[in-house]
Design a protein around this nucleic acid. Structure first.
Ligand SMILES: [Mn+2]
Ligand SMILES: [Mn+2]
Ligand SMILES: [Mn+2]
Ligand SMILES: [Mn+2]
Lengths: 229, 229
DNA sequence: TAAATTAATTAGGTACACCTAATTTTGTGT
DNA sequence: ACACAAAATTAGGTGTACCTAATTAATTTA
C-alpha cells in the first residue's frame, strides 16, 4: 500500500521531471521543489527505490517506474480534482486552492474522489489548465505553449499557467487575466521579450518575458506564423 | 495554534466525557476510545495540560478547560459537517462516513468548512442525529432518549443513534431502520428488555435491549406515560 | 483492614521524518 | 590534467508519536 509520504514524493518527482526547464531529475532539484534538504530526500528515495516505485542512477537521475508512474498520476488526479472542486463547486479563487489541495490529495477514498469529480462536472482540466488524468492514468491532450513565443498580431486563448503559486496567480488576477480569456498580442519588444497585449475590450498590459513564459496559450488565428513551442 | 494531534485528543475527551455510560473521564477510558495504550495517552495529556486545554486531577479525572472545550467543539463541528456533506451531497450511506470524516476533520481551512456546510444545506444535525455546533460553539438542542425506556403503545420518531460504528449501522440498515423513521412500540419483553416494534407499514422486528439502548428517539404520542430518560 | 485487582505512572525503548556538519564523488573551466 | 565548485552521500543528531515491561498508587472485595 502506498503511504501519504510516498505520494508526496511521487507527485514531486512527476512534477519536476515533466517540468520544461529541468533536464535531469536530481536530488537537489527535488529537495528544492519539496523544500527539504538533500539528505532527507536521499533517505526517502532509497525507500522508494526498494519499493520499486522509482529507479535512480547517477547517470540518468531519478525516474518513475511503471508502478510509480501509475501512483504518481493517481495523486496528480486527486490533487487536480480537488482543485477543480474547490473552484467550481466551493467558489474558491484559482489562487487559493493549491495548498488546500495538497492537504486534501492524501485523503484516502477512491469513492470520495469519484463523487467530487462528478460534482465538479467531470472536468478534463483543472483551474490552472492542467490536464486531469482519468482513472486509468490517461491524460487528456491540449496543445499549449507559452505566450512568450508569440508574434505581434497573434490572437490567443489562455489555456493554463506554468505556476501554481498564489503570488503569480494574484498578479494575473489583478490584471484581470484568467483561464479561457482571449488575448490580442499587440507588440513584442525584442529588447527584453516583453509582450504588450490587449484583452477584454478595454484592458491592455505589458507583460515581462518572465510572466509571458508562465502563461500557456493556444493560437486561434489561422496561419499567423507564430513559432510553436 | 492547535495541532492535528491535539484535535484528535480533544474530540476524544469530549466524546468520552459526554458519553452517558462513563461517569469519570480517565486515562484508561480515553486510551480505549482512541485505541492507544495508557502511557501514550498520559504523555499527551501532560502536553494538553501544559497548553491549558485540559485539567487533570486524580479525583476529578480529565476535563476540558474553556479553551479546550471551544477547540473540541470546533473539531466536532468539522467532523459532523463533513459527515453530513458526505451523506447529503456525496450520497454516501450513513454507515460509510465516520472513518472518512475522521480524516477530513483535520483539514485546516475554515473557509472550506463554511462552504461544505452551505452545500449541505446548513444542517443542524449530522447523519447520525448528532447536533452540529455553530461557529460560536453552541449546540442545537433536541430531546432524545433511548428507545429502551419506552412503553408498549408508544409512537416514536428516530432522532439518532448512540453508536457510529459501521457494524451497528449496517445492522439497522439491514432492518431498514433509518433516521426520521417512525416506530410503533408493540411490546416490551420485561424478561430481557427487548422491544418489539412495527414500522413502515409492513416491517416488524424484535430489538435486543442492547440495540434499543443505542437508538435515540422522541415520543410523538401525547401523554403516553413513557419514562423519559 | 488486608489482599487482590485495577489504574496510573515511570523507564526505556522503536520508527519515522526531518535536520546539520563533514566527507566523498562528480563535473567544469583553464 | 588539475583545481575548484557543486552535488551526493555518510554520520550522527532532534522531536514526535507510538510501544512494552516494570513499578507504584488507588480501589475493591473478602
Ligand atoms: Mn496545484
Ligand atoms: Mn493546478
Ligand atoms: Mn462520526
Ligand atoms: Mn456522526
Amino acid at each position: 500500500m502506498i503511504k501519504t509520504s510516498d505520494e508526496k514524493y511521487l507527485r514531486a518527482i512527476y512534477q519536476v521531471s515533466t517540468s520544461e526547464k529541468i533536464d535531469k531529475t536530481t536530488i537537489s532539484e527535488l529537495a528544492y521543489y519539496l523544500d527539504l534538504k538533500p539528505p532527507t530526500v536521499l533517505e526517502r528515495l532509497k525507500i522508494l527505490k526498494a519499493e520499486k516505485l522509482i529507479t535512480y542512477t547517477k547517470t540518468n537521475g531519478i525516474a518513475l517506474t511503471k508502478t510509480g508512474y501509475k501512483e504518481a498520476l493517481n495523486v496528480i488526479r486527486k490533487h487536480r480534482v480537488w482543485e477543480t472542486f474547490l473552484v467550481k463547486v466551493c467558489k474558491f479563487g484559482w489562487n487559493e486552492v493549491h495548498e488546500l489541495a495538497e492537504q486534501l490529495q492524501n485523503i484516502n477514498s477512491e469513492k470520495l474522489i469519484d463523487r467530487i469529480f462528478t460534482l465538479s462536472g467531470e472536468p478534463k482540466f483543472d483551474p490552472h489548465g492542467d490536464p486531469i488524468p482519468d482513472k486509468a492514468g490517461v491524460l487528456p491532450t491540449s496543445q499549449r505553449r507559452p505566450l512568450l513565443n508569440s508574434v505581434s498580431g497573434c490572437k490567443c486563448l489562455v489555456l493554463g499557467v506554468n505556476e501554481d503559486s498564489a503570488e503569480f496567480l494574484n498578479y494575473l488576477t489583478e490584471l484581470k487575466i484568467g483561464l479561457n480569456d482571449k488575448l490580442y498580442v499587440e507588440k513584442i519588444f525584442s529588447f527584453d521579450g516583453s509582450v504588450k497585449i490587449k484583452y477584454k475590450n478595454t484592458y491592455s498590459a505589458v507583460l515581462s518575458s518572465k510572466v509571458a513564459e508562465q502563461i500557456l496559450i493556444t493560437c486561434t488565428k489561422a496561419g499567423c506564423g507564430c513559432k510553436n513551442k
